[in-house]
């Protein structure tokens, strides 16, 4: 398989990008791989409040660094994931979580994709039924118009 120069450059860029992702922390936070995994899992689920479109694992903002330190210390202390999330949501609200919990306030957020699917299905079904009922010659004249 021949690779075009464009795809070669794109591949190189992608490899470079993947290579730098997660390079914010200079070294692993924990020697214990299990704790390190928990740390990486959590920091990838928490939003950096300064940049707002990055997780605290991705961001080099000073606040993200402080929040990573906070998470690291709480894991080292043996706090559960729920305790760490409670600590942060008490201060920053649900917005700090990339995966907001289902509550009365977020109900519409969670229901919206389903509502849109229902709406789309409804429109499609209605259109199909209407078209099916139309006489064939009327349909032809519409398409040729």
């Amino acid at each position: 398989m021949m690779k075009s120069p464009v795809s070669a450059v794109a591949t190189a860029l992608l490899i470079g990008w993947v290579g730098t992702a997660g390079a914010i922390d200079p070294s692993a936070a924990f020697a214990d791989p299990a704790l390190q995994a928990r740390y990486e899992h959590l920091t990838n689920e928490l939003r950096c409040l300064v940049c707002q479109n990055q997780t605290i694992a991705d961001s080099n903002a000073s606040l993200a660094g402080d929040l990573r330190r906070e998470v690291r210390e709480m894991i080292a202390r043996g706090d559960t994931e729920a305790q760490i999330k409670d600590f942060l949501t008490a201060r920053y609200g649900d917005f700090v979580l990339y995966d907001p919990p289902l509550s009365a306030r977020t109900l519409f957020l969670w229901a919206a994709p389903g509502l849109f699917v229902l709406l789309t299905v409804g429109v499609v079904v209605r259109t199909v039924i209407r078209r099916a009922r139309q006489p064939i010659d009327a349909d032809d004249s519409e398409e040729s118009a």
Binding site: L49, V50, S62, L63, D66, R91, Y92
Partner: peptide, 13 residues
């Protein structure tokens, strides 16, 4: 200095 009190207040900027 360490930004710990700022986190307690939910400061983000």
């Amino acid at each position: 200095d360490e930004g710990r009190v700022a986190i307690d207040w939910g400061v983000y900027g």
